[in-house]
Design a protein around this nucleic acid. Structure first.
Lengths: 202, 202
DNA sequence: TCGGCATGTCATCATCTGAAGACATCATCC
DNA sequence: GGATGATGTCTTCAGATGATGACATGCCGA
């Protein structure tokens, strides 16, 4: 499941570059750890993911998590930043943006941040980072749109739509709702778009 | 915070009943444990709730969890059944039912089951029970409504609406979205109703 | 009354988990 | 080629947690 890239992949006759395997590469180790963590946090959530599992999937010793990131918490924060950097904010009511987002989320699964939007917690650093990400990513664009359109209660409507979207995305990957999970993005898109569009006054 | 009922509460001059404190009462202990567990599972989720915390809040020794329920898992299952028994299935598109549900969820907070709808997991017994509850509680009524109305893809639409609803409810209690959390049920109701109603074809 | 069972209390165990540190090994620079 | 720091590997620790069992104590029937 883990993408085997990240390494030059020059398995053939590299004459100029005999492909030095570079057995020691901190940057690579960091990257492998971050990717494995991103996957596992998304699959199982923060709590149920152990540093040993992360290390195993990354093929890197778990002790390096502490060395390079400081600990599990900071590693999580790194994955959130990675998630954040991956995509620009999206206006959920714009159908093309929604399509793009939906397709990507279907392929990759929701990042760890989505869970933080919905899970109770003591507002740890972990959750705050996730929520800030989600806010900037989804709520803010909607708020701007609603404000521009002169809709009443723009903030509340934006949060409502974002929460509903998060619920749908998470439910799709959670396995709780079979048909929703199995639905093709193209099939789901119009339904979801209509649903979210109803966050505006009729 | 824990409701002090469950005991006859005859603090005054009970002439006929001198209020035998009944220092030993298995049924009462079970009930106290179940209630405390329900609260804590809702507040913190299953994983972050420890049996020691449950016992502390209930005022009951945690060892009795194992004795009376068999373990933490079975205690969770008991809370789900309690949640299930509390309310009848609700058609989310019927505004009055939605109001009732929303008010109650605002007061009590979402039960532990809502989290299972949305959280990833290995499909443990815990999650399966929660999901069965949610399905019967929310998805099935919508499916029936849509089928009666002759709407296409009734199952998908029902799951979509239920997922969106779960997202909103959970987001409200998670603390991630301030305005959504602070909104009064009466204020939120029309917005949420319009949103969910959009799960039907326009 | 008193004996047996239910109920409650306490100490402890086995395991998991994040983290820290000692040590080994490789890379790079002089 | 050797020294020094970076990188990786392994062991171990301390705390948390669910569970278990021994023991104490109250309740009820005979």
């Amino acid at each position: 499941m883990t993408a085997p890239d990240g390494e030059p992949l020059d398995g053939n006759d590299g004459r100029t570059e005999p492909a030095p395997p570079r057995r020691r590469d901190a940057a690579r180790s960091r990257e492998l750890l971050t990717r494995a963590a991103l996957e596992l946090f998304a699959e199982r959530g923060y709590d149920r993911t152990t540093t040993r599992e992360i290390g195993e999937r990354a093929g890197v010793d778990p002790a390096l998590i502490a060395r390079y990131f400081g600990g599990k918490t900071q590693l999580y924060l790194a994955t959130v930043k990675l998630e954040l950097g991956a995509e620009a904010p999206a206006d959920l009511l714009e159908e093309e943006r929604l399509r793009t987002l939906l397709v990507r989320l279907t392929q990759r699964g929701p990042g760890p941040s989505f869970q933080a939007a919905v899970l109770p917690g003591d507002n740890t650093e972990v959750q705050q980072a996730s929520r800030a990400y989600l806010y900037e990513r989804m709520v803010h664009p909607l708020h701007e749109r609603f404000t521009t359109e002169g809709v009443d209660r723009p903030q509340l409507r934006a949060e409502l739509a974002a929460a509903a979207f998060a619920g749908v995305i998470l439910a799709r990957s959670s396995g709780a709702f079979a048909e929703l999970a199995a639905a093709d993005p193209e099939e789901l898109l119009p339904l979801l778009h209509d649903l979210l569009a109803a966050s505006r006054p009729t």
